[in-house]
């Protein structure tokens, strides 16, 4: 029999991990939705966010500022740096290739990812950086499962930010311009939408979300490292595909689902198969679900407009 508290704990684990995946996945899905480009450099932007925050926090460590204010400043600086990086990447690497064959920007994206990673290695070094502890890590017991203040904050903050993004896209003038650009770039341009500005803004917003996600990863796991972005980016990209790439609620759903599937997979696959598969199949399990979803719903769980995209 499965003990209830362990099950609950696994759901909590999955939700925390999933919230982070979802925030990163939004960056992939926004860019894809508008340009049809998979921005593989997004994982590196997340990493730069985390490392910038570490540097800011180390600078502030001696100061008398209260911890929440320090955290806020770290978030602010990291977001600004990432927004600048996102803007520059778009301007330098992607804009000149906007009318090139689709493979060209994809390869450029991989190149940008490698360049950013190694730049970060030169700036922050090869060592792991300890993310300063700003909140207590004593768990609260809720129905037998433990959850820390930080984890609660991560889930709530991620939900708030995602809600805000939905409002921005669906209720504002800027959001309407983004949706129009997504639907048809050329026509939107003819209708008076400043395409360059919208695409740049998309990168900037996605990068800010990425910075926040990076700080969450750093704070939750206590570490930041120049290589942390690639695996995280890959998982978040998977989450975006799972939910339906190009679709905002899809990315959120995909992220949370992937987190929960991974947790439950790692937690129960061994017992469920009588020890035949172990937790080393954790990732296989997550990707198996992805394959199943893609076989039956090629556009992802919430993906639409397959005919248009094809």
């Amino acid at each position: 029999m499965i003990p209830m508290d362990t099950f609950l704990q696994q759901i909590v684990n999955g939700l925390v991990l999933g919230s982070i995946y979802a925030l990163v996945a939004l960056g992939y899905t926004m860019v894809y939705g508008i340009m049809g480009l998979i921005n593989f450099a997004h994982g590196e932007v997340v990493m730069i966010g985390a490392l910038t925050a570490v540097s800011v926090l180390q600078l502030l460590a001696g100061s008398a500022l209260p911890a929440p204010l320090q955290a806020l400043m770290a978030c602010g600086v990291a977001a600004l740096v990432c927004m600048a990086v996102g803007f520059l990447v778009e301007r330098v690497a992607y804009r000149p290739l906007r009318h090139a064959p689709r493979l060209a920007p994809l390869i450029t994206a991989i190149g940008v990812s490698i360049v950013l990673q190694h730049l970060a290695m030169l700036i922050w070094g090869r060592n792991y950086h300890t993310f300063p502890t700003l909140m207590s890590s004593t768990p609260h017991a809720i129905g037998g499962a433990g959850i820390t203040d930080l984890q609660i904050l991560i889930v709530v903050l991620a939900a708030l930010v995602m809600g805000g993004l939905m409002l921005l896209v669906n209720r504002t003038r800027l959001g309407r311009a983004m949706r129009a650009t997504s639907e048809n770039t050329a026509i939107a341009g003819l209708m008076g939408v400043d395409i360059n500005r919208i695409i740049a803004l998309t990168f900037v917003i996605g990068s800010a979300l990425g910075a926040l996600a990076g700080i969450m990863v750093g704070a939750n796991y206590g570490i930041a490292h120049y290589g942390m972005g690639s695996l995280l980016g890959l998982k978040a990209f998977t989450a975006a595909v799972l939910g339906g790439i190009g679709n905002l609620p899809g990315a959120m759903l995909g992220g949370v689902l992937l987190g929960v599937i991974e947790s439950l997979g790692a937690g129960y696959i061994g017992d469920a198969t009588g020890g035949f598969f172990g937790s080393n199949y954790q990732d296989v399990f997550a990707f198996f679900v992805l394959i199943l979803v893609l076989v039956f719903r090629p556009s992802g769980l919430m993906g639409e407009k397959v005919a248009e995209r094809a």
């Binding site: 003990p3 362990t6 704990q9 696994q10 684990n13 999955g14 925390v16 991990l17 990863v217 796991y221 570490i223 290589g227 942390m228 695996l231 991974e262 947790s263 439950l264 997979g265 790692a266 937690g267 129960y268 061994g270 172990g278 937790s279 080393n280 954790q282 990732d283």
Partner: peptide, 21 residues
């Protein structure tokens, strides 16, 4: 318990929860 991860992972909460049980 005998659990597994990989040399690039940062999240171990799922396997550690199982270990805890």
């Amino acid at each position: 318990a005998r659990e597994f991860t990989n040399d690039k992972a940062t999240d171990f909460t799922a396997i550690l929860t199982k270990v805890k049980s």
